[in-house]
């Protein structure tokens, strides 16, 4: 496949991923004339909390992976320290930004309560994401296996 055509394909796949929310947004604007139900302040708070929590938890997970990387490299300390610093940066940024006041506090009264809520929220969101990935991959696989087996001769004739 040519490079330009491959890049076009990737763009189409990315657009297909964005299509459902865009379609709902378009229908909303058509029928109600505005973005009904969107509170940009609340949405930004959720986005920022999700970003900080995902960064910190993902860094922790990758920090664990560094142990396996270290096995093949005579256990170097430098990358481990680098990743520990990156994770600590995430934790400090979370505590700092939540502590700034109502900007990142959702319905919680303290930094600790918000941080714990963020982690639990992330578990639930990750569960939903994992489940939808399982469903989408599983249905794709079952759609492929439910077709009749292909003959190699057909392919050769083409």
């Amino acid at each position: 496949m040519k490079e330009s055509s491959l890049s076009m394909t990737w763009r189409m796949i990315f657009l297909a991923f964005l299509l459902p929310p865009l379609l709902i947004l378009a229908l909303d604007i058509t029928f109600y004339g505005s973005f009904k139900g969107i509170d940009s302040g609340v949405s930004f708070t959720r986005f920022a909390n999700a970003t900080l929590t995902a960064y910190t938890l993902c860094s922790l997970f990758l920090l664990g992976n560094l142990f396996f990387y270290g096995e093949s490299r005579n256990r170097p300390l430098a990358p481990l320290v680098g990743m520990v610093v990156a994770t600590l940066l995430g934790i400090l940024a979370t505590v700092f930004f939540i502590g700034q006041g109502p900007m990142l506090l959702e319905d919680n009264g303290s930094v600790q309560a918000q941080a714990i809520y963020n982690i639990v929220h992330m578990f639930v969101s990750s569960g939903a994401i994992l489940m939808s990935v399982c469903v989408a991959l599983g249905v794709t696989f079952s759609a492929i296996t439910s077709q009749k087996p292909r003959s190699d001769f057909d392919l050769e004739e083409e």
Binding site: P21, S43, F44, R46, F47, A48, N49, A50, T51, L52, T53, A54, Y55, T56, C58, S59, L62, A86, G90, H121, M122, S125, S126, I129
Partner: peptide, 14 residues
Amino acid sequence: IADMAGIAVGSLLS
């Protein structure tokens, strides 16, 4: 949607 965008950005960053 905000949540998923945040998760994507945070994970990619890490």
